[in-house]
């Protein structure tokens, strides 16, 4: 029982990081039909932006979060202007954009390796404190990760449900063309999508950095799990991506009660395959939109 509670806490923390990454990637996919293979490397860049602010410049951790958000959102906007918009205007297909993002992920990951080298980096954060809650222990980092993710998720949910921009985003994800003819400024919505998707990637990268360690591979390694979370939750549904991410984190940690921890990732991918075979529309079971 203790072990179950302990692995649940661990799973919620690692699942929160998957969920944040998945919600950002899912938004970009829903609105722009871009399966962005560079999303993991966007997260990594967020981690390094935070590293520069927090360690190189010596500013507080809170400021470094802002650095991560701003840098990655800016990268999203930059790639939109330089790559994705011109390609969409030339009528590029889904697979063409996917392979293009794959090429970009090579470029970004290796520019990061070029700039900062392959060494493991950490932020100036208290990674030893933990609280004894009687039957389980929870570390300060786990508290930070879970609380920050939860706040971010509630903010995203409110944005999508309550604000004009959020409603426009959902309209675009239903039908880009219909949204455009009904007078929505699609270009502005696309800009907000990159700010939101990039910002979430930056935040996820920051949390992954403080929770694990930062190397040029950090985000790329998480990417497959993030895809798994999105598919588990039902593609193109940000709320589903959240559920998918938490489920993945929990199942991976629970599996350590049965299998060796080194099989954790493999268990995650096995869940993904099972989910695709038996619930291809995601755990929440929405009908998939096609076309």
């Amino acid at each position: 029982m203790d072990e179950l509670l302990q692995t649940t806490i661990n799973g919620l923390a690692s699942g929160s990081i998957y969920a944040l990454g998945a919600v950002g990637l899912s938004l970009v996919y829903a609105i722009l039909k871009l399966v962005n293979f560079a999303h993991g490397d966007f997260m990594t860049l967020g981690g390094y932006a935070a590293f520069v602010v927090n360690v190189t410049w010596g500013l507080p951790l809170v400021v470094s979060v802002l650095g991560a958000l701003v840098v990655v959102a800016a990268l999203g906007l930059l790639t939109e202007a330089a790559i994705w918009r011109p390609m969409r205007e030339r009528g590029a297909g889904v697979m063409q954009l996917l392979l293009l993002s794959l090429g970009f992920s090579f470029v970004l990951r290796n520019l990061i390796l070029f700039a900062w080298g392959g060494e493991t980096r950490t932020l100036r954060v208290d990674n030893t404190s933990s609280y004894d809650l009687g039957i389980v222990r929870i570390s300060l980092l786990q508290v930070i990760v879970i609380v920050v993710s939860a706040v971010a998720m509630v903010a995203v949910a409110l944005l999508l449900r309550r604000t004009y921009v959020g409603k426009s985003m959902r309209a675009l994800s239903d039908s880009f063309a219909l949204a455009e003819v009904s007078g929505i400024n699609t270009r502005r919505v696309v800009t907000y999508t990159w700010i939101l998707g990039g910002g979430l990637a930056g935040l996820a990268g920051f949390l992954a950095t403080i929770f694990t360690v930062l190397t040029p591979q950090t985000g790329w390694v998480l990417l497959l799990g993030i895809f798994a979370a999105i598919i588990l939750g039902g593609i193109g549904d940000p709320f589903g991506a959240l559920v998918g991410g938490l489920t993945l984190g929990l199942v991976q940690e629970w599996s350590t009660m049965v299998f060796a921890p080194t099989y954790k990732e493999a268990v995650g991918f096995a869940i993904l395959i099972l989910a695709l075979l038996f619930r291809p529309n995601g755990l929440l079971g929405h009908a998939t939109r096609t076309g």
Partner: peptide, 10 residues
């Protein structure tokens, strides 16, 4: 080297 490979794909 991998930056070059990535740029080639793109």
């Amino acid at each position: 080297r991998y930056v070059v490979v990535g740029l080639l794909i793109m």
